[in-house]
Every structure is written in structure tokens, then in C-alpha cells.
């Protein structure tokens, strides 16, 4: 789906990071009137997972969906235009940051009601299986989503029918500001999921290559019809829950927690593995892409007023 060479992985990590950093710079100008849930620091999950997928595999994300969308190859120009609320946005401006979609690049629509996409991804997998396609569906969601009953109902059904779906829980330890300790009796999420006869794996070292190894094995199993897989990947949210800023001044968490994640920043680590010249040229081309995307968004028209009523029903 996304280039699995080292350069490809770095490019994707860097593109997501820099794009979101630019979004957070633009945000105070009010050009982006959309609640942005940034993935900064968590990009390695979307990048690691999508780097083991085939081009036509399906990706399902959430309102914190910029990373999954970009890693899956969703159009950067269209995403930026969507955030600006413009006609050329990936959803014509109707969705905004929380509802990215790009079916041409196999990105299923993102949803802002936590947990809603989980059974939908399972249903998409049911269809691909019935059609005899070897596409699999990857379903990204946060740790909070696993608290909804629909999560367990979906696991049970997906496993019962041995559906080709990879569940990826991005466990950043927070649901808005609520720490996991206030929401889970035990942290044994993988064990809970295993009782549904689903392969699980926890990736706790924040390392994109460990994650890729896990994902590769899962995807192999899924493709040969062994049913769903589940990965819990530990991560840390560097910015506030929603909005462009850091929030360590809010008193609910300590900046010291951030340090170990920054030291282990996968974008930097993978970058260091590259030849210096190569890295610089990737960086430069990413800056060009982002500038171009912002120009594209600025230049795009506002949606025509008659679009307000379009697409309520399918034709």
C-alpha cells in the first residue's frame, strides 16, 4: 500500500509529522475551522501497519485519522482542502478533519462517534471475503473504543465468520484526559481479545520494525483464512486531545512522560538509518508537497451553496 523501503517508511513518517505541524501553525489563523485531533508522535502505527499491506487493502480510521489516511496513500491536497472546508476537499468540505475519506485509495470514511467504525470495518471484510477477493481490512481505533460493547460484539462476529480484518488498537493511554487506570480494571486487553480465538500481539517498545514484524505475521494469517488478528500498539499522544497545542500545562499529565517517547521518536530513528543526502532530499520534497497542498487548499473554491442538499440520498 505504501512503499515498504526504508526511504518509503521515512517519507511517510515525515510527511505526516510535518503536515500536522503545519496544520497546527495554520490553525490559529482560523483557516481550518475543524476540530483537529493530531496524531503527532503516533504516526509510526499507521505507517508501520500500512507498510505491510497490499495496494488494494482497505484502511478504516477514526476522527484522529490524518495519519491513517496519509499512510494509506490518501491525497494530501484533498485532505488539506478538506480541512480548509473547500470544494476540492476529499469530502467536498462536508466532512472536515474528523471524516476523511478516499475510496480511490481504499480509505474508508472516518467517524467521530467512537467505536462506530469497528463493526463497519468487519462488514466490509465480510463483503471482501464473500466476493472472493484477497483484500483485507485494517481497522484503527483508540483504547477508549475498546470500552464500547460494540467492540466485543464485533470481535466475536468477525472471529465466528473468520473474516479478513486486522484490528489495530492505538493505545495512547488516554481517552480525552481520562487515564486508562480509571477506565480498565486490568490492562490485559490482548488476553480479553484472545478469548474470542483471535490472534493477538502487543507492541510495547514503540518500535516501528517490531510493529511491522507483528503486522506481517498477522496479515499472513488473515490472508490464508485464519480469521481476524488484533494488535495493541502502545503509543503516546504528544499534543492535546483536540486542537493544535501541547497541553502539559493543564495538570493532568506530566511532560516527563513525553521525554522517553521523543527520545524514541521513530521518525528520527528511521531518518538516522538513511544516507544523509537521501534524507535531506526526502525532507525537501516533503516541504514542497506540503506547500503545494496548502496552496491547493487556499486556491480551491468554497463549495457551491447548492452542494448543501447533494448526496443526502444515493442516486
Amino acid at each position: 500500500m505504501q512503499d515498504e523501503s526504508l526511504e518509503g517508511i521515512y517519507r511517510s513518517l515525515r510527511l505526516i509529522r510535518r503536515t500536522e505541524e503545519e496544520i497546527s501553525k495554520i490553525y490559529p489563523t482560523d483557516k481550518i475551522k475543524s476540530p483537529v485531533h493530531l496524531s503527532i508522535g503516533q504516526e509510526f502505527i499507521a505507517v508501520g501497519i500500512t507498510s505491510v499491506l497490499n495496494d488494494d487493502d482497505i484502511v478504516s480510521g477514526t476522527y484522529r485519522g490524518h495519519a491513517a489516511y496519509m499512510a494509506a496513500g490518501g491525497s494530501l491536497n484533498k485532505m488539506m482542502a478538506e480541512l480548509f472546508g473547500k470544494a476540492d476537499g476529499c469530502a467536498g468540505g462536508k466532512g472536515g478533519s474528523m471524516h476523511l475519506v478516499d475510496m480511490e485509495n481504499h480509505v474508508l470514511g472516518c467517524s467521530a462517534v467512537v467505536g462506530t467504525t469497528i463493526p463497519v470495518a468487519v462488514g466490509y471484510a465480510l463483503a471482501t471475503k464473500n466476493k472472493g477477493s484477497d483484500q483485507i481490512v485494517v481497522c484503527f481505533f483508540g483504547d477508549g473504543a475498546t470500552e464500547e460493547g460494540v467492540f466485543f460484539e464485533s470481535l466475536n462476529f468477525a472471529s465466528l465468520l473468520k473474516l479478513p480484518v486486522l484490528f489495530v488498537c492505538e493505545n495512547n493511554g488516554l481517552a480525552i484526559h481520562a487515564p486508562i487506570e480509571s477506565r480498565w480494571v486490568t490492562k490485559a486487553l490482548c488476553e480479553r481479545v484472545e478469548t474470542f480465538d483471535i490472534y493477538t500481539s502487543q507492541v510495547a517498545d514503540g518500535n516501528i520494525f517490531t510493529l511491522r514484524d507483528s503486522a506481517n505475521k498477522m496479515v499472513e494469517n488473515i490472508r490464508v483464512g485464519k480469521g481476524p488478528g488484533f494488535i495493541e500498539c502502545m503509543a503516546y499522544r504528544w499534543r492535546e486531545h483536540v486542537g493544535p497545542n501541547e497541553d502539559f500545562d493543564q495538570g493532568y499529565r506530566d511532560r516527563a512522560e513525553l521525554r522517553k517517547w521523543v527520545e524514541n521518536d521513530q521518525m528520527e530513528k528511521v531518518g538516522e538509518m538513511l544516507d544523509e543526502q537521501m534524507r535531506l532530499s526526502i525532507d525537501a520534497s516533503i516541504e514542497d508537497d506540503i506547500v503545494a497542498a496548502i496552496e491547493y487548499a487556499e486556491a480551491s473554491n468554497w463549495p457551491d451553496p447548492n452542494m448543501l442538499d447533494k448526496n443526502v440520498f444515493a442516486g
Binding site: 472546508g85 472536515g96 474528523m98 463549495p303 448543501l308
Partner: peptide
């Protein structure tokens, strides 16, 4: 509300 789904973009929301 206009009988449509609420759009995110302010350009359309102003007619909603």
C-alpha cells in the same frame, strides 16, 4: 435545520 446532513464547512453550514 435545512433537511440535509449538517456539513462541516462554514461555507455550507451558513445556509443550514
Amino acid at each position: 435545520f435545512k433537511h440535509t446532513t449538517c456539513p462541516a464547512t462554514p461555507a455550507l453550514e451558513k445556509y443550514f
